[in-house]
Design a binder for these strands. Structure first.
Length: 511
RNA sequence: GCUCCCUUCGUCUAUCGGUUAGGACGCGAGAUUUUCAUUCUUGAAAGAGGGGUUCGAUUCCCCUAGGGAGCGCCA
C-alpha cells in the first residue's frame, strides 16, 4: 500500500462494516465517493471495517460487494480488510505510546461502568480522563490488563474543517481520551481508520454525518502522529418518509431489495444523487453529466426523506428509454432472485410503501398454478420463447414503473388456457359480449396477416359495420385474451400471443 | 442530560440582500385514447416563530420551537 496522492488526484474510499447488506444510505455514500473520484480523475478504494471479529461474516462482505457491483460502482484493486492490518495498527499505537501521545490505562470495565453510572446519576456529562493519564506506570497493579488511551489535549479546541458541514469546532474538554488499543491487544475502530486512511493515501473522507464527532477524535490521532488529516466531507443521512431514521418499518433497506423490486441501477443512482445534491433545475442526468457536474462542496447539510414515488417516476423514465434487449437481460437476471411465497409472507408495515415485487408475487400466485419462485416464471417464459416477452416489451414499458411491474404486465403471455378471469374481466364478458365474440372470430380467422396494424383494421371495420363503439369490442377482447380488464393495447396483445393462442382464448370465452 | 448539526410548497430542491420565490415528484383539472398508462396543456401548494443588522431580508446575526446525529475496550 503506497501513497498515491502525489499526483494531486484525490483518493477516496468507501468503508462499510459487514453487517449483512449494503444499506441504501451506504449506497449513496459510496455513490458520492465514486462520483467524486470520477469527477476529479481520482481513485475509489474499498475497505471492509471488520475489526470486530464477532461480527465478521464473509457472506455479509459478499453482499456488499454484490450491491456495489449491481449499482455499477467500480472500485480499484482488492478491498482492504481492516482486520488483516491489525499488526500495523498496533505498531502505531506503540509509536504513540513512545512519543508520549498515548498512555497505558489500567481502568477496568467495571470501574468505567461505575464512573458512567455516577455521572448519569449526577446528571453530569462524562468525559473520560483516566487517572492513569498522569500516574506513574510503576504503580500499575500486577496482572491487570491495560488498554492504551490517546493523550488528547485537555484544553483548546479541535477543529474539523468539513467540505459539507463547514468549520465545526469541538472543545477539547468534551473529548475523551479514547482507547486506541483494547486490553486484548486489538486496535479500536478510530485508530484503525486513521492508520488505514493514512496508509492508503486517502485524501478525502466522504462518509455519513454520524461520523462527525469521530472526525474530531481522529484528528487528534492524526495530530499525535504529526500526520496530515484528509479533507473531511460528512454527508447528511437519509430518513424514511416520516422523517425518522430509515429502518425496517420503512420497507426496503438493503440495496438487493431495490434490485428485486425492479429498479434500474441508473435510476437509483439518479435518484440517490439528488438526495442532498443538485445541479440547478436538472432532474434527469446521465452518468457523464453527473461526473462532469458533481462536487462534494455542493452537498447540502440537511437530511432528506426517501420518496418512493419520485424513485418510481425516475425508474419509469429509464425503463422507457432503455432498449428492449437490455430490459430483457435485466428481467432475466432479476427474476431468479425472487421467491414469491417468501414475498407474500413478508410482514410489512401497513404504512410502508407498496412493493412491486410483492404485487408481482400476488399476481403470480393467483394466476399461475404451481409457481413459487422467479425461476419457475423464467421456465415458463423459456418454454414460450423469450422472444414473446421481447415482442411485448414495447407496449409494456410505457406503463411500468419497475421491472417487476413489467413482468406483472407480461404474465398474460404465460398464463394457461382456459384463463381464469378476474372479477372485472368476468363482468366484461356478458351475454352480449359473447355474441359479439362469436361474430368477430370468423372475421379474425379470415385475416391473412396477424400483425397488430392489420388486426386493428379488421376489428375497427367490424365495429363500424355492427355499429358498436370500439370500446364495446375491445374491452371484451382484452378480458378474453388476458383475463383482466387492464392490459396493453389488445392488438399488440394478439400479435404477441400469435394467431393460434389468440383465437383459442377467444373461443374459450365465446361459448 | 451534554456536544454538534439542520429548518423554502406534502416530498426532493433552486435562490450565492432587491425574483410575480423557480423546477421536479405527488395531487387537482383538461386534451389525446379500446382499458391502463405514456405524452401534452394547466391549477393549487413554501421561506417554523420572534427579535435584530440593512434603504431593503428566504438569504447575514441572535433567541425560541421543532427535527437529527454523536456521547462503548461497536463500527
Amino acid at each position: 500500500m503506497t501513497k498515491t496522492n502525489e499526483s494531486g488526484k484525490p483518493v477516496v474510499r468507501f468503508a462499510p462494516s459487514p453487517t449483512g447488506y449494503l444499506h441504501i444510505g451506504g449506497a449513496r455514500t459510496a455513490l458520492f465517493n465514486w462520483l467524486y473520484a470520477k469527477a476529479k480523475g481520482g481513485t475509489f478504494l474499498l475497505r471492509i471495517e471488520d475489526t470486530d471479529r464477532e461480527r465478521n461474516n464473509p457472506a455479509a462482505v459478499a453482499a456488499i460487494l454484490d450491491g456495489l457491483t449491481w449499482l455499477e460502482l467500480d472500485w480499484t484493486g482488492e478491498p482492504v480488510s481492516q482486520f488483516s492490518r491489525a499488526d500495523r495498527h498496533r505498531q502505531i499505537a506503540e509509536a504513540l505510546l513512545a512519543s508520549g501521545n498515548a498512555y497505558k490505562c489500567y481502568l477496568t470495565s467495571a470501574e468505567l461502568d461505575e464512573m458512567r453510572k455516577a455521572a448519569e446519576a449526577a446528571k453530569q456529562p462524562l468525559t473520560i480522563r483516566s487517572p492513569w493519564r498522569d500516574r506513574d506506570p510503576a504503580e500499575a497493579p500486577k496482572g491487570v490488563p491495560h488498554t492504551i488511551r490517546l493523550r488528547a489535549p485537555s484544553d483548546g479546541e479541535t477543529v474539523v474543517d468539513d467540505s459539507v458541514q463547514g468549520r465545526v469546532t469541538f472543545a477539547n474538554k468534551d473529548l475523551d481520551d479514547l482507547i486506541i488499543l483494547r486490553s486484548d491487544g486489538n486496535p479500536t475502530y478510530n485508530l484503525a481508520v486513521v492508520v488505514d486512511d493514512h496508509d492508503m493515501g486517502i485524501t478525502h473522507v466522504v462518509r455519513g454525518v454520524d461520523h462527525l464527532t469521530n472526525a474530531a477524535r481522529q484528528t487528534q490521532i492524526y495530530n499525535g502522529m504529526s500526520w496530515t488529516a484528509p479533507v473531511w466531507a460528512h454527508v447528511p443521512l437519509i430518513h424514511g418518509a416520516d422523517g425518522a431514521k430509515l429502518s425496517k418499518r420503512h420497507g426496503a433497506q438493503g440495496i438487493e431489495d431495490y434490485r428485486d423490486m425492479g429498479y434500474l441501477p441508473v435510476a437509483l443512482r439518479n435518484y440517490l444523487v439528488r438526495l442532498g445534491w443538485s445541479h440547478g433545475d436538472d432532474e434527469i442526468m446521465s452518468s457523464e453529466q453527473l461526473i462532469a457536474w458533481f462536487d462534494i462542496t455542493d452537498i447540502n447539510k440537511s437530511a432528506s426523506r426517501f420518496d418512493f414515488k419520485k424513485l418510481d417516476d425516475l425508474n419509469g423514465h429509464y425503463i422507457r428509454i432503455t432498449p428492449d434487449a437490455e430490459l430483457l437481460k435485466r428481467i432475466k437476471s432479476m427474476l431468479p432472485h425472487l421467491n414469491f411465497t417468501a414475498l407474500l409472507e413478508l410482514t410489512v408495515d401497513p404504512k410502508a410503501p407498496p412493493r412491486s415485487d410483492v404485487a408481482l408475487a400476488r399476481d403470480v400466485i393467483t394466476q399461475l398454478p404451481k409457481v413459487a419462485t422467479g425461476q419457475d416464471v423464467c421456465a415458463l417464459f423459456e418454454a414460450k420463447g423469450w422472444d414473446r416477452l421481447a415482442a411485448a416489451l414495447p407496449s409494456l414499458k410505457e406503463r411500468a414503473k419497475t421491472l417487476a411491474e413489467l413482468v406483472t404486465g407480461a404474465l398474460y403471455i404465460v398464463t394457461a388456457r382456459p384463463l381464469a378471469l378476474d372479477d372485472k374481466a368476468a363482468k366484461l364478458i356478458d351475454a352480449e359480449a359473447k355474441a359479439m365474440l362469436v361474430a368477430l372470430i370468423p372475421r379474425l380467422e379470415a385475416c391473412t396477416s396477424w400483425s397488430a396494424a392489420d388486426l386493428e383494421t379488421a376489428v375497427k371495420a367490424f365495429a363500424e359495420e355492427t355499429g358498436a363503439k370500439l370500446g364495446k369490442v375491445a374491452q371484451p377482447l382484452r378480458a378474453a385474451l388476458t383475463g383482466r380488464s387492464v392490459s396493453p393495447p389488445v392488438f399488440d396483445v394478439m400479435a404477441v400471443l400469435g394467431r393460434d393462442e389468440s383465437l383459442a382464448r377467444l373461443k374459450d370465452q365465446a361459448v
